[in-house]
Design a protein around this nucleic acid. Structure first.
Lengths: 219, 219
DNA sequence: AATTATTTTTAGGTTTGTCTAAATTATTTT
DNA sequence: AAAATAATTTAGACAAACCTAAAAATAATT
């Protein structure tokens, strides 16, 4: 058996390893889970004993095969529940994270698999993040940060890098929702802000802080 | 803040007090929660300090006003999730208890209230048990155990007393589902078994063990 | 290379929830 | 009413998950 706390550690290690592309450091985990390095050190010993991670003292930590499987299924559950909360219960995309954080710990494969069918086997969650299937397979998608694209680019919004509710609410206000089409008109070198035209004809100026957190896919 | 364990104690005390009609004993709680009397004694002290229960040493325990509110909301959540699992995800009524037992601990009023709307504000769960509303109000319904009814009675199935999956699966097999109409033809005094005719014309003999666990309402 | 700074681990302690065994209180039986 | 039985509480321990403070190891700087 694996506790909810242990599950959260595995998820955190997965997330950090993925982003950094290398073993997760004790401090990075502590900061992600809002706890102390000492607590993390403690826990890593336990997780290593259960062979959920590969851990060398002072050298950071990576998930083992079984740890990776568990983390993947947690992310699957988290994101499917987010789809449920938005699609079926009518929550906004900035309101669902905390609920999903709890729901992902509910045990039982038949539940998550039936939920998947009920939702029509969605491949992406309300933030555009991919949902692994029951076998842990990911759907990949070519998408680029708006900050990396050139004027003249036409495409639609496919995801966000920053998931904070502040940012999501800002996007809501500006009508920058998932799937929305837009064209990149111009980039101002001075502050890297950009001018875009939405599919409804509206024109907006977006700061670099926005463009660095918005993913788009070519039309 | 209140832990999941504490929540389970409150629910157990609620259930026992309701059934026995008096304060819950330490032993009854221990047996219900599959733990020891010593552990219960420990926990009762903590719950009393938080004023969630009214507790007099050696005299059993009852819920306080706030304890009762929490227990009621837990039951509300449990039963609404059961409706979801059966109505939306297609589970059988004998498969949903363990999932609901986990889902009931998910925190956040907006979730349960939106779930309630999504399900069409059901007043009864898949076992016929009433679902309290957001204010903790219960819907009452006149229903009688089949064992207490007289030959000639006509009505339909409204609930079960025993919630074990064994019993629920037996009812499934016999087609004795919630809402099914039936007529009580005869009771055999020797073993208190009864002969009934279902709405589809089929006739069945039911043992006292069944009739003592099946609720009916007059047509 | 030596010193300084940072990161990580260890040591020791707290809280929650559990247990067994022993002591105490309540209830039932004789 | 006394004795026996049952129920409950206390005492003392343990594991999980956390903490602070101190020690040790690694990385960065001079």
């Amino acid at each position: 058996m694996i506790s909810q706390t242990e599950e959260n550690y595995l998820k955190s290690i997965f997330k950090i390893s993925e982003k950094e592309g290398k073993a997760a450091s004790t401090n990075a985990i502590a900061s992600d889970l809002q706890t102390t390095a000492a607590s993390v050190s403690d826990m890593l010993k336990r997780l290593a004993e259960k062979e959920l991670i590969v851990y060398e003292k002072y050298r950071g930590v990576e998930l083992s095969e079984s740890g990776q499987q568990i983390a993947t299924q947690l992310i699957r559950k988290h994101r499917l529940w987010e789809v449920f909360l938005v699609e079926k219960l009518g929550f906004n995309w900035d309101e669902v994270h905390d609920f999903a954080e709890q729901l992902e710990h509910v045990q039982g494969n038949s539940l998550v698999n039936r939920l998947d069918s009920f939702l029509g086997n969605p491949r992406f969650d309300p933030h555009g993040d991919p949902i692994p299937d029951a076998n842990g397979q990911w759907t990949f998608r070519k998408q680029s940060l708006l900050s990396k694209l050139q004027p003249g680019f036409k495409g639609h919004i496919t995801g966000v890098e920053n998931h904070s509710s502040d940012f999501l609410q800002y996007l809501n206000q500006q009508g920058l929702l998932l799937g929305k089409g837009l064209e990149l008109l111009e980039r101002y070198p001075y502050d890297q802000s950009v001018r875009v035209r939405l599919e409804d004809g509206r024109e907006l100026t977006l700061s670099d802080k926005v463009t660095q957190n918005l993913y788009l896919k070519e039309a």
